[in-house]
């Protein structure tokens, strides 16, 4: 009997996640690198925050806005990178052909990449968040329960971006690898990480508000600066995420189908 059903599917996802764990364990440098960049980011922005708080700007004196922005942005960015680089890794190692002829279904590959992006993110961000507390007295948990929702919104957005990058790389090969690295940065100015939506020109505001992370950064500023939180904004962000996630998966599936038609899968890793 063919190994079908949810249990068989979960077993295949677990097998693939195990492969990513083996990979991370095989290299201490990779492990250090996971923490190194977000740690440097946090230090830089933390010291800037400290400097600004000693000046006269009343807004900058609001504790932790910059560090909070950096940490939340890093959740989005690291999760997206975790998804994309893990996928690219399969192509670098010329292993994708083996995976795609195995009983692994494309949605299981996506599920494994998504699960791994969260594990990788935890390895990366938990030590940095702890360090932010010890260096600057910023406690990410001060954001309270909304932090869980912020985290979920950002991770879901990162998966949508990861799916689009992976699809494009499948279709166009490693030549399109740059997209995997740069796609998240496209959001940096648009989703108002370090400034409120109100500073954007009117024509750009609808675009910014159509991006789920914008609602996260607005929500974070609202909590830290005004001690208020509008849950409606987060529901809106979640709804947008559902749309983007479906669009991301459809894009990935279409590009995979197109790669099968064009024979790109035969030339992977080149």
């Amino acid at each position: 009997m063919p190994p079908t059903g949810v249990r068989a599917s979960l077993r295949r996802i677990r097998a693939l996640v195990r492969r990513y764990i083996y990979l991370l364990r095989s290299s201490g440098v990779r492990l250090v690198e996971l923490i190194y960049w977000p740690f440097l980011q946090m230090l830089t922005w933390g010291f800037l925050q400290r400097y600004l708080s000693e000046t006269t700007s009343p807004l900058a004196q609001a504790a932790g806005v910059l560090i909070g922005s950096v940490l939340l942005w890093d959740i989005l960015f690291r999760s997206k990178i975790g998804f994309s680089t893990t996928f690219i890794e399969e192509m670098w190692s010329r292993n994708l052909g083996n995976l795609l002829i195995s009983p692994l279904r494309p949605y299981e590959l996506v599920a494994a990449l998504s699960a791994w992006s969260v594990i990788r993110l935890s390895v990366s961000m938990v030590p940095v968040a702890v360090a932010a507390y010890f260096f600057f007295g910023f406690n990410l948990l001060d954001l309270g329960l909304p932090l869980v929702a912020f985290f979920a919104v950002l991770v879901l957005t990162s998966w949508s971006l990861g799916l689009i990058s992976a699809g494009v790389i499948l279709r166009y090969g490693l030549g399109a690898e740059e997209l995997a690295w740069s796609l998240a940065f496209l959001l940096l100015p648009l989703c108002c990480v370090y400034y409120p939506v109100s500073v954007l020109p009117d024509w750009l505001k609808p675009i910014a508000l159509a991006l789920p992370p914008t609602h996260v950064f607005e929500g974070m500023r609202s909590i830290l600066l005004h001690n208020t939180f509008d849950a409606k904004e987060l529901w809106w962000a979640m709804g947008l995420n559902a749309v983007y996630l479906v669009a991301g998966y459809v894009t990935f599936s279409r590009f995979l189908a197109s790669a099968r038609v064009n024979g790109t899968l035969l030339r992977l890793g080149e």
Partner: peptide
């Protein structure tokens, strides 16, 4: 190829999981 950084046993274990 099989992933170069993984040991042979790790690679075979992963594929054993994928093939159920």
């Amino acid at each position: 190829d099989l992933p170069a950084r993984l040991t042979v046993r790790q690679n075979l274990t992963v594929y054993a999981g994928l093939y159920g």
